[in-house]
């Protein structure tokens, strides 16, 4: 077990390191430096600026310095705003995290409930309805859902106000983000619940006279939830990338929309910092998922 965990942590560190390599060298492959403007700047000024940001050093040395700064918590300076990226990023991330957490909690709760209902009413009307809507939910990209929600509920029906910082209403963005993971969890829970209900220990428990409710909740559902844990890592990744379009559509000033803006304004230091930051979150989420999965179910053998 300790061997598995240390192996997994090592793998996570290696992949994080590779991500920084990819981002750093990819960003440096872009022709033109940050001080190349349309207006010709005095070469002496450029030289001074480059010396200040260590851009006159060889690429390997630049990478070493960047990593050194990164490990000391210095994420660089945005070329657009001229301010340190870290403070802005954390501020924006708190907005995104609020949105993402709500979506994740809703997806997990409703996903498990719907999945359990579908499994207990196998091939009956509730099951068919749930499966129909979850199939639909997995076929709909988040941006389609988000724009349609905005169009129908905000603009046409006027049930929800358009999102603004004075009047933050997270209902529609959270729904737009939560539908896909919810549909996925529903299907996952249904399959594993059906699997659990067919196990011998369920029959044994019923034969012993344990009540139906207790069998469902204590014996079946608890075991059925184990495969759901595996989806938590991918779900974090989905919500983080999904929030890029959802925030953009609902004009929420979170990290996702910052990222998209920095792509269109070519703010390379910000793109780099946000990529590495989000990648860190995803890798850590996957790491924790794998470890927790292994801890809760000793039957699982991973190699």
């Amino acid at each position: 077990m300790a061997k598995y965990i240390s192996k997994r942590i090592l793998l996570a560190i290696v992949s994080l390191w590779i991500i920084t390599l990819i981002t750093f060298f990819a960003m440096n492959a872009i022709p033109g430096g940050p001080f190349n403007k349309e207006k010709a700047t005095d070469p002496a000024v450029i030289q001074q600026l480059e010396a200040r940001y260590n851009l006159d050093k060889p690429l390997g040395e630049q990478y070493r310095l960047y990593m050194k700064n990164l490990l000391h918590g210095d994420w660089g300076i945005s070329t657009k705003s001229g301010r340190p990226i870290w403070n802005d990023m954390i501020e924006k991330f708190s907005v995104s995290a609020g949105l993402g957490l709500r979506a994740a909690v809703i997806a997990i709760i409703f996903g498990i409930i719907l999945g359990a209902i579908a499994a207990l009413n196998r091939n009956k009307l509730p099951d068919r309805l749930i499966i129909f809507f979850t199939t639909l939910g997995t076929a709909m990209p988040s941006f389609v859902l988000a724009t349609l929600l905005l169009l129908v509920f905000c603009l046409k029906l006027g049930l929800f106000p358009v999102f603004s910082s004075e009047n933050p209403n997270y209902t529609l963005p959270v729904i737009a983000l939560a539908v896909y993971p919810m549909a996925y969890i529903t299907r996952l829970t249904k399959t594993s619940m059906l699997d659990a209900l067919n196990q011998d220990y369920i029959r044994t428990a019923r034969a012993k006279g344990v009540s139906r409710t207790k069998v469902i909740f204590v014996h079946a559902l608890r075991n059925a939830l184990i495969p759901v844990i595996t989806y938590v890592g991918p779900m974090v990744a989905y919500i983080l990338t999904g929030s890029m379009v959802v925030e953009n559509i609902f004009t929420i000033g979170g990290l996702g929309s910052t990222f998209v803006t920095s792509i269109s304004t070519r703010d390379y230091p910000t793109i780099m910092a946000v990529t590495i930051f989000l990648a860190m979150l995803m890798v850590v989420a996957n790491l924790l998922t794998d470890i927790v999965y292994k801890l809760v179910d000793p039957r699982i053998k991973l190699d």
Binding site: S15, A26, I30, P31, G32, A237, T241, T275, M282, V283
Partner: peptide, 21 residues
């Protein structure tokens, strides 16, 4: 290692870069 890389982020990043390159 490749499996543990966040694919969507890298796609976005490389799209940005390759677009210029």
């Amino acid at each position: 290692i490749i499996y543990s890389l966040p694919d969507m982020l890298i796609i976005i990043l490389l799209s940005v870069v390759l677009k210029e390159v």
